[in-house]
Amino acid sequence: MKNWFPKGFFSRNETLVAVVIIGFCIIATISDPLFFSVTTLSDLLRASIVMGILAVAVMLVLVSGGIDVSFTAIAVFAMYSSTLIALSIWPEMPWYIIFAISISIGAALGAINGILIAGFGLPTLIVTLGTLSIFRGFLLTFIGSERISALPPEMREFSRMMIARGTTESGNFYSLPWAFAALILVIALTWFILQKTMLGRAIFAIGGSHESARRIGINVKATQFFIYVYVGMLAGLAGIIFGSMGRMADPFSLVGWELSVIAAVVLGGARLIGGYGTLTGTLLGVALIVLVQNSLIVIGIPSTWQSVTIGVLILVGTGLPAYQAKRAAAKSA
């Protein structure tokens, strides 16, 4: 038993979340044997694409000791304006150019956060609360408030590109779109940045101690600026994928997801004080939230109980390890 698990394995958030996910799946399978199927898996994977990309972005911000609530507004802004741009100048624009435009708009909006936070040293929550409102208001006032269902054909095309599709023996349809590859790519890229580059280690260092980072000569401002631009880019990507898969550019969508996404990341063990967060934990957190949002009904809990369930999960999932740590500290004092 001793060397099978890394130290502290059982008191980690990741473990706890994984146990809850497995438990949930077992109960769901008992109450509805059809739950345990390729169809359910592909549904859940499809549902985690957008939230997964956003969660990876939020995790990065939390690790650096900040918080970002404006990413949903950036996502919808980038999605809606890039769709409009494509429709008005070149309706046949290939999907990857539309994606590139959306990511660039996201980067530009993220840069505004970056300038306010890194350049002027303003608190991250206040800046992003402000920009959340501004980006959204600007979108609805100056760019448009109409839903667009006649998307550029290439965007619809993108959402039809499938890695795998088919019908199970019991006759249920399943499909996994190529958009899922975007999530994998984002995870791989972010893992590389965080674990293998000095930039990534600097993000952890800033989250651990802002002042110490400054003192040993880490370029704190440049690092922070990078973080918010990167978050903007991921939000732009998530937004355009959301629009394509939903086959509609709705300027009222996405905003309101902030807290669910932050909840997923916090469930996965990232700490609001900064310095801690893992991709594994974040993805497990997303999996759990998506599971609760989509499959709560399967185990007989009405879907109106979704937010109560998520709230309880957050309290137990993050509260239990914190309580244990406090107990341990009190014992040794």
Partner: peptide, 22 residues
Amino acid sequence: FQDFSLFPNLSVAENISFSTQL
């Protein structure tokens, strides 16, 4: 410095080597 200016969340190895690598 009096507070050592270390990164509590990072490992001993990383704390020692960070400035050198920078």
